[in-house]
Computed example of a mutant assay.
Amino acid sequence: MTTPAEPTPPTDQQVRRRELASFLRSRRERISPEQTGIPVAGRRRTPGLRREEVAQLAGVGVTWYTWLEQARDINVSEQVLAAIAGTLRLDSSERVHLYTLAGHPEPAMDRDCKAIPPAVLVMLTHLEPIPAAVVNARFDLLAYNRTYERMVGGLAHLPFEDRNWLLLVFTSPRWRAATLDWEDAAARLVGRFRAGMAAHGAEPRWKSLVKRMRQESPDFERLWDQHDVRAPENFTKRYLHPEVGLLTLDYTQLWLGERSEIKLITHTPVDEDTWAKVRVLQETVDQ
Protein backbone atom coordinates (compact mmCIF):
# COMPACT_ATOMS: atom_id res chain seq x y z
CA MET A 1 0.00 0.00 0.00
CA THR A 2 1.44 3.36 -1.06
CA THR A 3 1.49 6.14 1.52
CA PRO A 4 0.36 9.50 0.10
CA ALA A 5 3.18 11.98 -0.10
CA GLU A 6 2.93 14.82 2.38
CA PRO A 7 2.38 18.24 0.81
CA THR A 8 5.49 20.31 0.44
CA PRO A 9 5.50 23.10 3.04
CA PRO A 10 5.61 26.62 1.63
CA THR A 11 8.98 28.34 1.46
CA ASP A 12 9.73 31.46 3.48
CA GLN A 13 9.47 33.51 0.29
CA GLN A 14 6.00 32.10 -0.47
CA VAL A 15 4.86 32.84 3.07
CA ARG A 16 6.07 36.44 2.76
CA ARG A 17 4.34 36.88 -0.62
CA ARG A 18 1.04 35.66 0.83
CA GLU A 19 1.39 37.91 3.84
CA LEU A 20 2.25 40.83 1.54
CA ALA A 21 -0.90 40.16 -0.52
CA SER A 22 -3.09 40.08 2.60
CA PHE A 23 -1.45 43.20 4.02
CA LEU A 24 -1.99 45.18 0.80
CA ARG A 25 -5.65 44.15 0.64
CA SER A 26 -6.24 45.15 4.26
CA ARG A 27 -4.63 48.57 3.78
CA ARG A 28 -6.47 49.15 0.49
CA GLU A 29 -9.85 48.35 2.04
CA ARG A 30 -9.48 50.88 4.84
CA ILE A 31 -9.07 53.92 2.53
CA SER A 32 -12.18 55.53 1.11
CA PRO A 33 -12.24 56.93 -2.44
CA GLU A 34 -13.10 60.34 -1.00
CA GLN A 35 -9.76 60.42 0.86
CA THR A 36 -7.91 60.22 -2.44
CA GLY A 37 -10.13 62.56 -4.43
CA ILE A 38 -11.75 59.81 -6.52
CA PRO A 39 -15.38 60.70 -7.39
CA VAL A 40 -17.93 58.10 -6.29
CA ALA A 41 -21.05 57.38 -8.33
CA GLY A 42 -23.60 54.85 -7.07
CA ARG A 43 -23.04 51.95 -4.71
CA ARG A 44 -19.69 50.17 -4.46
CA ARG A 45 -19.32 46.49 -3.66
CA THR A 46 -15.65 46.83 -2.77
CA PRO A 47 -14.81 48.32 0.64
CA GLY A 48 -12.24 51.07 0.31
CA LEU A 49 -10.32 51.41 -2.94
CA ARG A 50 -10.44 49.03 -5.89
CA ARG A 51 -7.26 47.42 -7.16
CA GLU A 52 -7.33 49.43 -10.36
CA GLU A 53 -7.68 52.65 -8.35
CA VAL A 54 -4.62 51.86 -6.25
CA ALA A 55 -2.69 51.01 -9.42
CA GLN A 56 -3.70 54.26 -11.08
CA LEU A 57 -2.85 56.40 -8.04
CA ALA A 58 0.51 54.65 -7.60
CA GLY A 59 1.36 54.81 -11.29
CA VAL A 60 1.72 51.04 -11.81
CA GLY A 61 -0.01 48.61 -14.14
CA VAL A 62 -3.35 47.18 -13.03
CA THR A 63 -2.37 43.63 -14.00
CA TRP A 64 0.94 43.93 -12.20
CA TYR A 65 -0.70 45.22 -9.00
CA THR A 66 -3.34 42.46 -9.19
CA TRP A 67 -0.59 39.86 -9.37
CA LEU A 68 0.98 41.44 -6.31
CA GLU A 69 -2.26 40.98 -4.34
CA GLN A 70 -2.49 37.42 -5.66
CA ALA A 71 0.91 36.57 -4.16
CA ARG A 72 2.44 35.92 -7.60
CA ASP A 73 6.22 35.52 -7.83
CA ILE A 74 7.14 38.95 -9.18
CA ASN A 75 9.89 41.42 -8.34
CA VAL A 76 9.00 44.74 -6.74
CA SER A 77 11.31 47.75 -6.97
CA GLU A 78 11.90 50.21 -4.14
CA GLN A 79 10.44 52.96 -6.32
CA VAL A 80 7.16 51.05 -6.75
CA LEU A 81 7.00 50.22 -3.04
CA ALA A 82 7.39 53.90 -2.19
CA ALA A 83 4.56 54.80 -4.59
CA ILE A 84 2.26 52.12 -3.14
CA ALA A 85 3.12 53.13 0.43
CA GLY A 86 2.21 56.73 -0.34
CA THR A 87 -1.04 55.76 -2.07
CA LEU A 88 -2.11 53.54 0.84
CA ARG A 89 -1.06 56.21 3.37
CA LEU A 90 1.12 53.85 5.36
CA ASP A 91 2.72 55.12 8.53
CA SER A 92 6.38 54.52 9.38
CA SER A 93 5.86 51.07 10.94
CA GLU A 94 3.62 49.94 8.09
CA ARG A 95 6.16 51.10 5.49
CA VAL A 96 8.92 49.08 7.14
CA HIS A 97 6.58 46.05 7.24
CA LEU A 98 5.75 46.48 3.54
CA TYR A 99 9.43 46.63 2.54
CA THR A 100 10.31 43.62 4.71
CA LEU A 101 7.56 41.47 3.18
CA ALA A 102 8.71 42.52 -0.30
CA GLY A 103 12.30 41.52 0.48
CA HIS A 104 13.75 45.03 0.50
CA PRO A 105 15.84 46.77 3.16
CA GLU A 106 14.28 49.32 5.45
CA PRO A 107 13.16 52.50 3.61
CA ALA A 108 15.84 55.17 3.48
CA MET A 109 13.61 57.77 5.12
CA ASP A 110 13.00 55.49 8.10
CA ARG A 111 16.74 54.84 8.39
CA ASP A 112 17.34 58.59 8.40
CA CYS A 113 14.79 59.04 11.20
CA LYS A 114 16.55 56.40 13.31
CA ALA A 115 19.89 58.09 12.59
CA ILE A 116 18.81 61.21 14.49
CA PRO A 117 20.67 61.17 17.83
CA PRO A 118 18.34 61.30 20.87
CA ALA A 119 20.18 64.44 22.00
CA VAL A 120 19.00 66.24 18.85
CA LEU A 121 15.39 65.37 19.63
CA VAL A 122 15.92 66.84 23.10
CA MET A 123 17.38 69.96 21.47
CA LEU A 124 14.27 70.33 19.31
CA THR A 125 12.13 70.51 22.42
CA HIS A 126 14.41 72.90 24.30
CA LEU A 127 14.73 75.25 21.33
CA GLU A 128 11.08 76.23 21.85
CA PRO A 129 9.70 78.72 20.99
CA ILE A 130 12.15 78.82 18.05
CA PRO A 131 10.59 76.75 15.22
CA ALA A 132 13.03 73.96 14.37
CA ALA A 133 13.10 70.75 12.33
CA VAL A 134 15.43 68.03 11.09
CA VAL A 135 15.59 67.34 7.34
CA ASN A 136 17.67 65.13 5.05
CA ALA A 137 19.24 65.87 1.67
CA ARG A 138 15.98 65.05 -0.12
CA PHE A 139 14.19 67.62 2.08
CA ASP A 140 12.09 65.03 3.89
CA LEU A 141 10.93 66.35 7.26
CA LEU A 142 12.24 63.74 9.70
CA ALA A 143 11.44 65.47 13.00
CA TYR A 144 10.25 68.86 14.23
CA ASN A 145 9.19 70.64 17.39
CA ARG A 146 5.70 71.76 18.25
CA THR A 147 6.19 75.43 17.36
CA TYR A 148 7.39 74.43 13.88
CA GLU A 149 4.29 72.25 13.45
CA ARG A 150 2.12 75.15 14.60
CA MET A 151 3.88 77.55 12.24
CA VAL A 152 3.50 75.46 9.07
CA GLY A 153 0.37 73.54 10.11
CA GLY A 154 -1.04 70.14 9.23
CA LEU A 155 2.09 67.97 9.23
CA ALA A 156 0.65 65.40 11.64
CA HIS A 157 -2.21 64.69 9.22
CA LEU A 158 0.03 64.11 6.19
CA PRO A 159 1.16 60.67 5.03
CA PHE A 160 4.77 60.02 6.01
CA GLU A 161 5.98 60.22 2.39
CA ASP A 162 4.31 63.62 1.85
CA ARG A 163 6.21 65.40 4.63
CA ASN A 164 8.68 66.85 2.17
CA TRP A 165 9.60 70.51 1.69
CA LEU A 166 9.76 70.29 -2.08
CA LEU A 167 6.33 68.72 -2.33
CA LEU A 168 4.74 71.11 0.17
CA VAL A 169 6.23 74.32 -1.24
CA PHE A 170 4.98 73.51 -4.75
CA THR A 171 1.68 71.68 -4.13
CA SER A 172 0.27 72.92 -0.81
CA PRO A 173 -1.86 76.08 -1.16
CA ARG A 174 -1.23 76.89 2.51
CA TRP A 175 2.56 76.68 2.14
CA ARG A 176 2.51 78.74 -1.04
CA ALA A 177 0.35 81.47 0.49
CA ALA A 178 2.48 81.60 3.63
CA THR A 179 5.84 81.74 1.82
CA LEU A 180 6.43 85.36 0.95
CA ASP A 181 9.00 85.88 -1.82
CA TRP A 182 7.79 82.49 -3.07
CA GLU A 183 9.52 82.58 -6.45
CA ASP A 184 12.93 83.17 -4.88
CA ALA A 185 12.31 80.52 -2.20
CA ALA A 186 11.14 77.98 -4.78
CA ALA A 187 14.12 78.61 -7.08
CA ARG A 188 16.53 78.26 -4.13
CA LEU A 189 14.93 74.97 -3.07
CA VAL A 190 14.97 73.46 -6.58
CA GLY A 191 18.60 74.54 -7.05
CA ARG A 192 19.62 72.84 -3.79
CA PHE A 193 17.70 69.70 -4.73
CA ARG A 194 19.32 69.52 -8.17
CA ALA A 195 22.76 69.92 -6.58
CA GLY A 196 21.91 67.00 -4.29
CA MET A 197 20.89 64.86 -7.28
CA ALA A 198 24.55 64.75 -8.34
CA ALA A 199 25.16 62.24 -5.54
CA HIS A 200 21.74 60.58 -5.53
CA GLY A 201 20.60 60.59 -9.17
CA ALA A 202 20.46 56.80 -9.43
CA GLU A 203 18.39 56.32 -6.28
CA PRO A 204 14.72 55.38 -6.90
CA ARG A 205 13.36 57.65 -4.15
CA TRP A 206 14.98 60.71 -5.67
CA LYS A 207 13.91 59.84 -9.21
CA SER A 208 10.35 59.10 -8.14
CA LEU A 209 10.11 62.46 -6.34
CA VAL A 210 11.28 64.31 -9.45
CA LYS A 211 8.76 62.40 -11.57
CA ARG A 212 5.96 63.19 -9.16
CA MET A 213 6.89 66.87 -8.94
CA ARG A 214 7.04 67.27 -12.72
CA GLN A 215 3.58 65.73 -12.98
CA GLU A 216 1.98 67.75 -10.19
CA SER A 217 3.61 71.18 -10.52
CA PRO A 218 4.22 73.14 -13.75
CA ASP A 219 6.22 75.65 -11.68
CA PHE A 220 8.57 72.92 -10.52
CA GLU A 221 8.97 71.62 -14.06
CA ARG A 222 9.79 75.15 -15.29
CA LEU A 223 12.46 75.66 -12.62
CA TRP A 224 13.79 72.12 -12.94
CA ASP A 225 14.34 72.53 -16.68
CA GLN A 226 16.54 75.58 -16.03
CA HIS A 227 19.21 73.28 -14.51
CA ASP A 228 20.24 75.89 -11.93
CA VAL A 229 22.12 74.69 -8.84
CA ARG A 230 22.49 76.40 -5.46
CA ALA A 231 24.92 75.93 -2.60
CA PRO A 232 23.66 75.67 1.00
CA GLU A 233 23.13 79.09 2.51
CA ASN A 234 21.64 80.72 5.58
CA PHE A 235 19.28 83.61 4.91
CA THR A 236 16.39 85.66 6.25
CA LYS A 237 12.92 84.52 5.25
CA ARG A 238 9.47 86.04 5.60
CA TYR A 239 6.55 83.82 6.50
CA LEU A 240 2.90 84.90 6.65
CA HIS A 241 1.07 82.88 9.29
CA PRO A 242 -2.75 82.90 8.87
CA GLU A 243 -3.32 83.73 12.56
CA VAL A 244 -0.37 85.69 13.97
CA GLY A 245 0.65 87.45 10.76
CA LEU A 246 4.11 88.25 9.38
CA LEU A 247 7.11 86.38 10.80
CA THR A 248 10.64 87.49 9.92
CA LEU A 249 13.07 84.66 10.64
CA ASP A 250 16.76 83.87 10.30
CA TYR A 251 17.02 80.44 8.65
CA THR A 252 20.09 78.54 9.89
CA GLN A 253 21.36 75.07 8.96
CA LEU A 254 23.39 72.87 11.31
CA TRP A 255 24.65 69.52 9.95
CA LEU A 256 24.68 66.63 12.42
CA GLY A 257 28.12 65.31 11.45
CA GLU A 258 31.12 65.81 9.18
CA ARG A 259 29.70 63.55 6.46
CA SER A 260 26.05 63.64 7.47
CA GLU A 261 23.42 64.84 5.00
CA ILE A 262 20.93 65.24 7.84
CA LYS A 263 20.70 68.71 9.34
CA LEU A 264 18.93 70.65 12.07
CA ILE A 265 17.34 73.81 10.76
CA THR A 266 16.16 76.68 12.95
CA HIS A 267 13.99 79.73 12.31
CA THR A 268 15.16 82.38 14.78
CA PRO A 269 13.08 85.56 15.06
CA VAL A 270 14.97 88.66 13.94
CA ASP A 271 12.91 91.23 15.87
CA GLU A 272 10.83 91.57 19.03
CA ASP A 273 7.55 91.51 17.10
CA THR A 274 8.38 88.08 15.63
CA TRP A 275 9.58 86.81 19.03
CA ALA A 276 6.22 87.76 20.51
CA LYS A 277 4.37 85.98 17.71
CA VAL A 278 6.31 82.70 17.96
CA ARG A 279 5.65 82.73 21.71
CA VAL A 280 1.95 82.99 20.87
CA LEU A 281 2.33 79.96 18.61
CA GLN A 282 4.06 78.04 21.39
CA GLU A 283 1.38 78.96 23.92
CA THR A 284 -1.31 77.90 21.49
CA VAL A 285 0.36 74.51 21.15
CA ASP A 286 0.65 74.11 24.92
CA GLN A 287 -3.05 74.75 25.55
Rank of each mutant, 00 (worst) to 15 (best):
A137R: 12
F235L: 05
F235C: 10
I38N: 08
V152M: 10
E149Y: 02
V285M: 12
P218V: 04
S93P: 01
L24E: 01
L124D: 04
L166R: 06
P232T: 11
L98K: 02
E29V: 02
R192T: 05
E52C: 08
S92C: 09
R174W: 07
L264I: 00
E52L: 08
T2M: 15
W175P: 06
R17K: 15
W206T: 10
T274D: 07
L142Q: 00
P159D: 13
L88N: 07
W182Q: 04
Y239K: 00
Q13S: 14
Q253D: 05
L246C: 07
R43W: 06
A102L: 08
T179V: 04
V278L: 14
V62W: 00
G196I: 00
M213K: 00
P117V: 09
L124F: 11
T36W: 00
Q70T: 06
Q253N: 13
S260M: 07
K211V: 04
A83K: 15
R95T: 03
T171V: 05
G37L: 10
T2V: 15
A143V: 03
V270W: 06
M1I: 10
S77N: 06
R89V: 00
G37V: 02
R230S: 14
R16L: 08
K277C: 01
Q215R: 14
E52Q: 11
R205T: 01
G61N: 09
D184P: 00
V96F: 03
K207S: 12
H227P: 00
K211I: 00
R50W: 08
N136D: 15
R51L: 09
L127I: 12
F193I: 01
E6W: 05
R16W: 01
E243R: 12
P269C: 03
R28V: 05
Q13M: 09
E216N: 07
L127C: 11
P173Q: 05
G257Q: 07
V120D: 03
D91M: 06
N75L: 04
I74Q: 12
N75C: 00
R18P: 00
A58R: 04
P7S: 13
A115N: 14
G48Q: 04
A178T: 12
E34M: 07
L90N: 10
R174Q: 13
A132N: 06
M151V: 10
R146W: 01
P7L: 13
S208F: 03
S172P: 06
A55N: 12
L90W: 03
D112M: 08
T87C: 10
M213P: 03
T66P: 08
F160N: 07
I84F: 11
T66M: 11
A195F: 06
I116K: 15
R214A: 09
L90P: 06
R17F: 07
R111H: 09
L81K: 08
A83P: 02
E272L: 09
G191L: 10
